[in-house]
Design a protein around this nucleic acid. Structure first.
Lengths: 259, 259
DNA sequence: CGTTGTGTTGATATTAATCAACAAGTGTGG
DNA sequence: CCACACTTGTTGATTAATATCAACACAACG
């Protein structure tokens, strides 16, 4: 067993550029708080980070602002270094499907359709690094770690997409909400806040309508389902943006369709 | 404008191994039937094909047979050189979501989850090429065309997955069926049979329950929706496995939610 | 202290699922 | 060649789940 570690975003003060998250390069801290660098995808030399930083344009996007349609969208892709963004597709009449949430280290723009029929919007204040696709292409040649990571990310996204198709096509509202909570718990345990003890709590940076549009439900159904789970003692809702998973095992069974 | 060309699978008689489809290497024929080789992803030398063929195990899978769980599944991936396969995920109680159909040149196993929680099954008789992931990894180094194609395929699959999420989460039954028909038309126009004139006909190798499990509907709803489209003159159904799109423009509007 | 955005709950409507029957092929054996 | 079973497809009646419409609660904010 590995010792319990907590990750946090790298800070500029540490001489790590925000784009380091693109390489899965984040600082891990053990419980006794002695920070050390941890590299998710193989050795990354400082000069590589500098090279990457030289083509990365780092921007802060305010909550609610859209950012994937800046400039020629098919010519860029993005990594998230701070905060959470939502990716979505729209129908002409306004119906929306959120295809995913992107957090620390996640790539946006891997799925490069010529029409770019999806958009991204900041949920909280988000810091992104923008890369020119053309520049990156040349860079990838001397950057094997990043190329591997691109494939790995694409693969992970495909797995997640297939899981989400199962959810949207075949799960009940109750199962969808349970699945969502379990998935958020996994995210929370992967990136806990620095001082957070290992609990069963999840923070929901997105509002209810985002959850609904992610799960293919209406906001009312999401609400009712959460309320029912609360009544049944499976969860507690101390605030609208925070949910405690009181019985994670039961929720997990629900999520996988075993109940 | 390019002249109208038709593609067909390469045949062994032409000295092209089936695995050539993995590189998008298919023969195009113009309408006057003078065959010529066409390479989708850059120049491929014969020695490269030989090298690829040396690690590809070509198998024929009979209709209805499963093939992704042979051996240690996470250790292989597959390309389809003949026929159509379906990829799906299951819930413990048997509910099924078909995540996609794979035809000529498509990869299976790009989404490599450690648990491999999805399966593949032949719809008609399918010819597949199986590759050891380990062998391929070493091969990819001297095989830039294939590495590019892997990324390209993963990217395309992600785009398709996002489109499918929109369909499953937000479209009505009618819109889903129309979307499916339009998508099959695109497939048919991309790979028409050798002698097929450019019509608005689509062949459906999959049965109704497969369509239903792909669209997140029941078989009855698929049937009723098709019948209604027929009554309205949008389609004709000469046989259960063949559908004529009489008014493709109207169907396309339906599919995109414009009606 | 009202205004606005967000969340929750209730009543009703609607879509698609379920349950049921039957039709149309398809293959098998007599 | 026909009778039969068996699979697949179609249609109808009813039910159930979720959407829609509506009202209200609550907190943040100027």
């Amino acid at each position: 067993m590995l010792e319990v570690v907590q990750r946090q975003t790298v800070s500029a003060a540490d001489d790590y550029p925000p784009c380091a998250a693109a390489l899965g390069h984040v600082i891990t801290k053990c419980e006794r708080c002695d920070a050390r660098s941890h590299n998710v995808c193989g050795a990354i030399e400082t000069k590589d980070l500098d090279r990457l930083a030289s083509i990365a344009v780092t921007t802060t996007v305010a909550s609610g602002r859209s950012f994937i349609d800046e400039g020629d969208p098919a010519e860029h892709f993005f990594t998230v270094s701070v905060g959470t963004a939502k990716l979505f597709k729209l129908l002409p009449d306004g119906r929306r499907q959120i295809t995913g949430f992107a957090g620390l280290g996640d790539f946006l723009g891997l799925a490069v359709s010529s029409t770019y029929a999806f958009s991204a919007e900041a949920i909280d204040n988000v810091q992104i690094c923008r890369y020119s696709r053309a520049k990156l292409r040349t860079l990838l040649e001397d950057f094997p770690a990043m190329k591997l990571r691109l494939l790995e990310m694409a693969s992970n996204e495909l797995v997640a997409a297939q899981e989400q198709m199962l959810l949207l096509g075949r799960k009940s509202a109750r199962e969808r909400v349970a699945s969502f909570l379990i998935a958020r718990l996994a995210v929370a345990q992967q990136h806990p806040g620095h001082a957070t003890p290992p609990t069963n709590a999840v923070d929901l940076p997105m509002v209810r309508v985002d959850i609904a549009d992610y799960l293919g439900l209406t906001i009312e159904t999401v609400c009712r389902t959460l309320t029912r789970l609360k009544r049944e003692g499976l969860i507690a809702i101390p605030s609208a943006t925070r949910i405690i998973l009181c019985k994670p095992a039961a929720l997990r069974r629900l999520a996988t369709g075993l109940d």
